[in-house]
Nucleic acid binder design. Structure first.
Lengths: 144, 144
DNA sequence: CAAATATACTTAGTGTAACAACTAATTTTT
DNA sequence: AAAAATTAGTTGTTACACTAAGTATATTTG
């Protein structure tokens, strides 16, 4: 590996991640989803295992606590999520989807899937496996 | 490709890009580089072809104009970059590294390279080629 | 059981990203 | 040459990422 390559992988990675997010966000907006890409990630994960605390959810979506706090704030304000007091621990909340939130997830899931597929044109299953392997390796290489 | 995979590539990509940036940023801070990761990218590109306009530079680093304006603002304030009036076009600037800016680039270049290599442990040249191919494919798939 | 420590979450501050709207200067069109 | 369109850059707004510091509650330790 040469110096130039080392300096480039981070650039390519950042550039592509931004484009992927931007592309999805634009579609989300055009189709009036009423949530951002990150809000969708949180909503979807919550729909798959409800009654999580914010810490548990933060861990699931790999976002830090302050970021998650604010995303939850917004989702509560929009009426998709509710913070219930945790029965045993008064420091924490149980996060629940409201009925509106559940409907939103059901409505958006196939549409998001559609949008996501666009990036994967001209690429196949092997490519995905390679992609995942390399990304995961980088990720764990930089683990604290 | 299944639905689950489509929903996952963007997650893996975003997660890894953030970790790579965060890792580098932490090192930058520990070693008192006095610039952020994004500011470094701009500085480095400027050192490789000076007297660019902001538009040209924005194009090089794949950042949009408002973002670049703000990064340049900071780099000027820190004394690494100067905006000179463009001789032919009064709308635009020529961006130049100051002497301090040039020194900074020379000083940081090997140190940044060192930091960047960390991510690439257990991965080789073939992996890089695959990685680049897939990222570039995704990028162009989502081109406007 | 009181003191120290840890955990859950929030707030504050800085930086970046994207979009929209804006000013000023330049180029094109008619 | 005036009007229209384009280009260069800035400003404003919303949202996210990360760090650090703060509050409140729980848990552990002496």
């Amino acid at each position: 590996m040469t110096y130039e390559q080392f300096s480039k992988y981070s650039f390519l990675l950042d550039r592509t991640a931004r484009r992927v997010k931007q592309y999805a966000q634009r579609k989300f907006k055009q189709q009036a989803f009423d949530v951002t890409v990150d809000q969708w990630l949180v909503l979807k994960n919550l729909s798959e295992s409800e009654a999580l605390s914010q810490s548990e959810l933060a861990h699931l979506v790999f976002k830090d606590h302050p970021t998650l706090t604010r995303i939850i704030d917004i989702l509560c304000k929009k009426g998709y999520v509710a913070r219930l007091p945790h029965p045993q621990d008064r420091r924490s909340f149980q996060l629940l989807l409201t009925d509106t939130g559940k409907e939103k997830v059901l409505e958006l899931k196939p549409q998001v899937s559609e949008i996501r597929q666009e990036a994967w044109k001209n690429l196949n299953q092997d490519d995905f496996n390679e992609f995942k392997r390399i990304l995961d390796t980088i990720y764990t290489n930089l683990e604290d």
